[in-house]
Design a protein around this nucleic acid. Structure first.
Lengths: 341, 341
DNA sequence: GTTAGCACTCTAACGAATCGAGTGCTAACA
DNA sequence: TGTTAGCACTCGATTCGTTAGAGTGCTAAC
């Protein structure tokens, strides 16, 4: 047996109906819902076939049918194909340009959650070009030095260093020159122990300042390892009864709060790059443990050259995929454009 | 009628029992629970009195009694008095010293939530001494200047400024001296428009750089207006049936996620300073709308001179106040000591 | 002042009956 | 050969009356 045109239309009708109501769909409903002009008996026969093919499920005898993960998958794939062909009209999301990236991204997450009525996440962009660009040591007061470290991509890191006795302007200048001439343009791998030792030796009695600066450099470069993730709309989980029972809700909220569990998602998304940049995980396909009853849709954005991050929506399997995809695409485009002018 | 010793013992027994079980407490239970050696009938009489006095409630006829807010209040006040007299043994919480304050505070929130099994919040300290301490302009590359601004309390703010044409070292030095000599030691109120105009004039063709720096200064000083709050343990709401129904849970989770609603708590806590630094809000006493069914316990910590923040626990009204208070006190002390060595 | 006893109240739990949506199958029809 | 009407059947959800039990308030006796 095979999936012909008519069977797919019926499957689609079942899914569309189920997305709206969340209730199993019966043959009579479909008989009226579609314009196939078929009786419920005929639909029943087709539904039996669809079930045998694995696209739909019966929660129990004498209930209607609900889509299986396989059914959703087919539906989503076909939808994505169609969307591909359509020219997306460029609506604007109300994303105000914020001066701070973290504010911007928090706002983006909130916007997604409010627009879709699902839970939303936004990961801060990861920087992959980690060459040292600039170091500046300045005296703040008698005991304190401020080290400012700028990494390629204009990521800035400050560290306050404490010194025993006040350094003269000349010493400070020397140290600055020493650090900048030797370290600038280097990546972390290139700053090896030998070089550090040589630097310390040249710094003489100020070797511990050099050590402090180098620690700070290491810190600045590895900073992108703990990935910042913003979330919004946790309460939306409660809107869908299939997610709202205590056990599930508790698990979801925890996963959502302990944001590092969502890191999987970002990794998965940034590595596997498909053409559209939109990735749909249905039910058990999701890489996040504890969200097996959900569907997750993600997209990759690129704020500036090489600064890629992930935005995503988490909701019930019966989510409005079209709406979610178009929302994500919209926001992705806007983020992409934001800093590229 | 008045609350005599025996009545209070019975009230205490009711509360203790209710804290454990969450079920209305009957006269028979109390008759056995206490060592007053009274029959259930006597207890019933006393309970009728306690109800008349407003310390306990009956959810419906033929159910046991539960404490009212007034009852809790009395219980907590007496407990706090006793605690006051006791010498607190100084246990250590496993708070590892983190190099970044935000990591430290996130960890603190998690620790509180895990130890108490309630939801926890930690606000980042607010800085109130906002005098400018130090400004440093540096050239990063041909088009970019980095402005580093240090405010008293060692809060650091960076801004990248874009310039049309490269500045000479000499110009840079002049600008640095200009800015530092005129602005250092001043608070925001003292930097008025006249001064800004004068500075710009002195900077000549580089007036827009001065403008950029001053904007950044303003930004750095007002930065503490949007208060950072860390939360943890949202899932713990689900552990207490009286908070876990959909409506309430949804509201709580939302309030907890939209952290700015918790700001009220921080404000309230930092302004009204009582002797112990521990503040207990029971039920409707809480300043946070949407948490009227909860009790909230907060404490103020002081990381460094003038850098005060708030830690707090949010749970059901029948929370284990003793445990919560001692946990908060412990953490408060540890935070207080952390940077004062 | 305390307590035993008793009638009374009210919720939670249980089970039987009923309802109704939906199915699968069969036989008739175009 | 595909479609449809008809029918018996299944099974979850709902309803409703019953029961069990926990707890009360009141009264009378100690």
């Amino acid at each position: 047996m095979q999936l012909d045109e008519r069977k797919y239309i019926i499957l689609q009708a079942i899914i569309r109906n189920y997305l709206e109501t969340g209730e199993p769909v019966g043959s009579r409903t479909i008989s009226k819902y579609t314009d196939l002009n078929l009786s419920s008996a005929t639909i029943r026969n087709e539904m039996a076939d669809l079930e045998e093919l694995g696209y739909i499920l019966q929660p129990h005898t004498s209930a209607g049918r609900i889509p299986s993960d396989k059914g959703y998958r087919l539906y989503v794939d076909k939808m994505m194909e169609e969307k591909e062909r359509e020219v997306e009209e460029r609506k604007e999301l109300l994303l105000e340009k914020e001066d701070k990236v973290d504010h911007l991204l928090k706002q983006a997450a909130k916007l997604l959650a409010n627009n879709t009525e699902y839970a939303a996440m936004v990961s801060a962009p990861q920087y992959h070009r980690n060459k040292l660009k600039f170091i500046q040591l300045s005296r703040v007061d008698a005991q304190h030095l401020l080290a400012v470290i700028v990494v390629e991509g204009n990521v800035i890191k400050n560290t306050m260093l404490t010194v025993e006795e006040e350094l003269s302007d000349e010493t400070l200048l020397k140290l600055n020159i020493l650090l900048n001439t030797h370290l600038n343009g280097l990546s972390m791998e290139e700053i090896n122990l030998g070089m550090i030792a040589a630097l310390k030796q040249q710094a003489g009695i100020h070797s511990e300042i050099v050590a402090g600066v180098i620690d700070a450099v290491a810190e600045a470069i590895k900073a992108d390892e703990d990935l910042e993730i913003y979330t919004s709309g946790a309460k939306n989980f409660f809107k869908y009864p299939e997610l709202a029972d205590h056990e599930r809700a508790s698990e979801l909220i925890t996963t959502f709060e302990e944001k590092q569990l969502l890191t999987e998602l970002v990794q998965d998304n940034l590595s596997g790059d498909n053409n559209t940049g939109i990735q749909v995980y249905i039910g058990s396909e999701t890489p996040v443990a504890g969200m097996k009853d959900c569907s997750i849709v993600t997209a990759t954005y690129e704020l500036d050259e090489g600064m890629k991050g992930t935005i995503g929506i988490i909701g019930p399997k019966r989510m409005d995929y079209e709406k979610v995809v178009s929302n994500l695409r919209l926001l992705k485009n806007q983020l992409d454009d934001l800093y590229k002018r």
